[in-house]
Design a protein around this nucleic acid. Structure first.
Lengths: 340, 340
DNA sequence: TGAGGTTATGGAATCGATTGCAGATCAAAT
DNA sequence: ATTTGATCTGCAATCGATTCCATAACCTCA
């Protein structure tokens, strides 16, 4: 039997639709006996509320959009997981929107929010331009951006959750220095990108803090892929005085470094210690297990979702830009003591 | 400026709301000049159609739900990716619903479909019971189930997409036999589960097909985790006549087997060849790279989504149960020739 | 008994877009 | 000039639930 409406229930029971609505939703008064009869009829008639009608009237969809550049990237899965933990708890559903790193798709996601497909959005944006920001600022629904941070303009109507990647590479590098290593190489992403530059600066600062000399020759720019890491490391290890350790700006490159070491007959961490960043699931499964700086993706997701929920429930949001601290996870690839 | 409605546009232009609707949606006649004025006013007034109102009237949400047991499992990410490829192409949005392996959550997902939150659903169900199936059969919206196959009852109103895992372990085992290996161990999941039993049968059949003896003692029941695979393998390798190869019912267990081999000082694939199943992303990154039977998750997702789209567009669906064939991906862990 | 308050219910408007029907306009054809 | 048909537009109903307002019923206490 197909489902019914409150009108059919009203007719069956002999009351008005408004009474049925009150009985079922619990908003407003309703007599005990009437309510019982309505409940019974609802069950008998296979009633289920129509979501669209409810949304139209209440102006709430109970859904949020997560606009993400790349569905295949495990990094974002962790975020999804974190987001879902929070929104589910508040009775919201999660719509996944795949932007493919394209501005046009990001704008489509924004358009969906404008059309009230969802009550709010969390977006990992790779296009911080006028058009994008402008469109977001015109929305009446709340938006939280992650993955990047520019100090918010006065008129900006969105919130930020971001990771301090500077602190991340700094921690990772300091950890290696703490192991007594002094010649440390760095393989990063493009230095002209915000996040790539920050990671590089963190590395450098750790060296300077420890009073170690900083050698430009030990810094390589690569592309965040395993192959890129491998190629850079191969070159680095060929140098007459090769580094005792390598900091990679993400785990995939770090794994590439491991392969280069293996190929060169160098043991990890015995000859070369390695630290990565992202703390991917697979990093604890490679051999030796990779020491990595976790960017706390799940936590980013949770915090972003929490802010969104706060905004949606009219609660005050004190921190327009939440900074997440990365966390060093020490494993075999960097640790001289627990090599196994 | 906040967005406006067709009524405001109508007033501004001096026409009726129905004309505005026709102009914007393209359904029905509309004069050229009028249309131009309406378009202009729509832009000026920051118009965006209200999704809820549209749904209420048209009865279409342009969304589908993917109900998945476990957001963290990379296996499902691939499915999500496949699903999204297809639904996006048709202008649908994807709602992710996390059932946590719980029947109650699966029922909630079904309830959402009943309330017309989405036009259809793809579900990976771990609870094939009366309650569940009954609720699905009462829906008027189409549902596609994956991950399990029972021959559909006459009254069942849903479709199936499933993988022939029997064929998967059979292929993997045959591959090892083809390498000249004859003593082959098996580490599977619970044999009392449908899928666990099928995988086991595929393994056995490959041996029998090749005329090899089947030893019960080389079959271990484990739990699909890396640790479970490790423990089972450790025991297996301690046997007086240890196997030359091991087939594991999934990649995580296979990786556990690799660790056990390493611990026992056995080389892979020299001393022990290994084949896994699932073809996880990380399997191509461990060392040595793992040979694995791909269950074609992405394809499952695509096919399931395609069936759903067909149903939603009133196209005939010829195959109520689509069988996907697994695909063997040969890498280093099983190949005597290309060891590197 | 009646005043005052609480609880129960119905009526009707509302959310915003779609669409069938009817009337109006206009061009082309007879 | 009149018929025919195509094109354009407005009216009003509709999708299904929510909610404000008004009235009615009921209870309580002086």
């Amino acid at each position: 039997m197909s489902k019914s409406t409150i009108y059919q229930i009203a007719e069956q029971v002999g009351v008005s639709p408004s009474t049925v609505s009150r009985a079922l939703s619990g908003n407003g008064y309703c007599g005990k006996r009437t309510k019982a009869k309505i409940m019974e009829a609802a069950k008998a008639l296979n009633y289920a509320p129509d979501h669209a009608a409810k949304i139209l009237k209440t102006r709430r969809t109970n859904k949020i959009i997560f606009a993400v550049p790349d569905i295949c990237n495990p990094f974002y899965f962790d975020m999804i997981n974190g987001i879902n933990q929070v929104v589910e708890e508040h009775g919201y559903l999660l719509i996944l929107f795949y932007t493919k790193h394209r501005l046009s798709e990001e704008l489509k996601a924004i358009q969906n929010v404008k059309e009230r497909v969802a009550d709010g959005m969390i977006m990992v944006s790779f296009h911080f331009c006028e058009e994008n920001i402008g469109a977001i600022n015109e929305l009446s629904a709340p938006v939280v951006l992650t993955n990047r941070y520019d100090s918010p303009g006065g008129g900006d109507r969105f919130d930020y959750v971001y990771v301090d990647t500077f602190e991340g590479t700094k921690q990772g590098t300091a950890h290696l220095i703490g192991q007594g290593l002094t010649r440390i190489g760095y393989i990063g992403g493009s230095l002209s990108e915000q996040t790539g530059y920050q990671r590089y600066c963190g590395f450098r600062e750790a060296l300077l803090d420890a009073g170690l000399p900083f050698e430009d020759g030990l810094v390589y720019e690569s592309d965040y892929t395993e192959k890129g890491g491998y190629l850079a490391a191969r070159e680095m290890l060929r140098r007459t005085s090769r580094p005792q350790a390598v900091v990679a700006a993400n785990d995939l490159m770090a794994i590439g470094v491991m392969h280069a070491c293996e190929e060169a007959g160098l043991s990890v961490p015995g000859d070369v210690a390695i630290v990565g960043m992202d703390n991917l699931d697979l990093s604890s499964r490679v051999h030796p297990k990779l020491t990595s700086v976790s960017l706390e993706q799940e936590d980013i997701g949770r915090q972003a979702a929490q802010i969104l929920m706060d905004r949606l429930h009219g609660r005050e949001v004190y921190d327009r830009a939440v900074k997440i601290m990365p966390k060093l996870v020490v494993r075999q690839s960097s640790s001289r003591t627990q090599d196994g």
